[in-house]
Structures are given as C-alpha cells and as structure tokens.
Amino acid sequence: MLTIRNLHKAYGHTVVLNGIDLDVHRGTTTIIIGPSGSGKSTLLNCMNLLEVPSEGSLQLGAYTFQFGPQQLLDAKTVRAFRQKTGMVFQGHHLFPHMSVLENVMEGLVIVRKQNKADARKKAEHLLEKVGLRRFVDKYPDQLSGGQQQRVGIARALALDPDILLYDEPTSALDPELVGEVLNVMKELAGEGMTQVVVTHEMHFAREVADQVIFLDQGRILERGTPAHVFAQSRSERVRQFLSRISHAWREDNAERRANAHSVI
C-alpha cells in the first residue's frame, strides 16, 4: 500500500536518509528501530511530507510523489495527502487552548469542513475507542501523559487516514503510562489499521509487528519479521544495538509488562 523507493533526504551536506526502499502492506504494523540519529524520525516525517525528501519516490493509494531538486510539490495535493497519513508525535503536540473534544474535531471542522454536530459525534466515538469518553470536556493540561497521547491518536484517526505514523509515542512517558498507549495501538493493529511505529518497545514489537526495520546512518541494515530481526540478524551492528536495548529494557520490564495488560 505504501511504497517508498530510493528515498534520500539531505540537509545541506548532511545526508540523513540514504536510499530507503520500503513496502508497507495494508493492515500491517511496521516497527522502525535504530540508534538515535539514524534517520528514523526523518523517515517517518517524510511519509507525512512534514519533511520533503530530496530524492526518490513515495506512493500511497492514489498519491504518487517524485522528489528531486526540480520537483515542486503542489501544496494542495500535499495537504490532501497528509490527511491520509495520521501522525502521532513523541511530545503529543495537542492544542493546549482547545478541549479534548475540540482537539479531535479540529481537522474535521476546519480541514474537512464537516458540520459541527457530525464532527462532534465522530470525535466522541473516537475518544470512546481510546477510552477517554469521560474526558471530552477536559483540556490537555488536565490529562496524564498517557491520556494525552491517546487523544493524539484519536486526533490522528479523525480524518480516516489510510496509515498511522507514530514517532516514539511512548518514549516521553512515565513507565507506568506506556501500557495504556501501547494497548490502543495493539487494538488498532487488531482492527486492521496500517501502522508505522518508531519505537524501542521491544516487547510490543515482538507481539504486534509484521515487519521490523533496522535503520542505521540513513540506510536499512536489516528487515524482516520480529523473530528474524531480533534472533537471527547477521549484522553485528544490529545484534549489538539489540543487546544494549534489551539490557536497559529488562530493568523496568517487569513493571511495564504488568501495566501493559492491565490498563483500559
């Protein structure tokens, strides 16, 4: 469904993405892992065109983009495309001056020009889905980090995107709040939502991912099923990274796992 070919992104002389080929199939969850500075977030931002790639191509449904120095993107097409790709940010970036309900309605009312009653109904339904129906009239600063992030997911879902992109959705959260967010993502995966997730939650990756991508210095070093990447990688770099991650991870693992199954 999402097809990326030979994607490059450079800022001046700094090359961040160096020839990425990636296929994401409908209804699957793809996890992107890799050391910091490897280009994970940039790759994700390119999928929503928050960053415009320097070279290569991207295709999602009816949208095909060719990138290059001479290629100017049509602003209107870009905006339409972004509605097809929901984005969940590490720092949630909810709109602080709007209630939870208004946050979710905003895209429907302002971008889709839907009438408020319909938008409200839909927003309430989505908030129900992420377990926050009771919080519609609260403001983002009155919620916990996990709740904020779930509102962020509802906001991204509001425009019926074909694919949801998550940029480290749980790494800014207190450990005990991680589970409730991952549970929502798991549920969405179960419902057949197509998702691409940058995360270091290995347990989640093992359980939910159809495909794991290991990114290093702007290239894909390893790809495959979680079992393949986590257990059988031939790359020394991948094995090193994984052992370091799982080491750090094991320490607060018990606590997290207990929460991951108890919340919502």
Binding site: Q83, M87, F89, H93, F95, H97, G107
Partner: peptide, 27 residues
C-alpha cells in the same frame, strides 16, 4: 509557540493560514 504546534496542525492537512488562525495566533 513550540514548532510542534505548527507540525501538528500541518500533519492533519491544515494550510499555513489555518494553522496560524486556529492554532498559533490564539496561543
């Protein structure tokens, strides 16, 4: 106003003017 607010608005398909009017200027 944090850059993330611009990005959040743009990510749901808002135009520059919409982000400005709805998200940035009120804050």
């Amino acid at each position: 106003i944090p850059k993330g607010q611009w990005r959040a608005g743009e990510s749901i398909g808002m135009s520059y003017a919409q982000v400005l009017r709805r998200i940035i200027l009120p804050q």
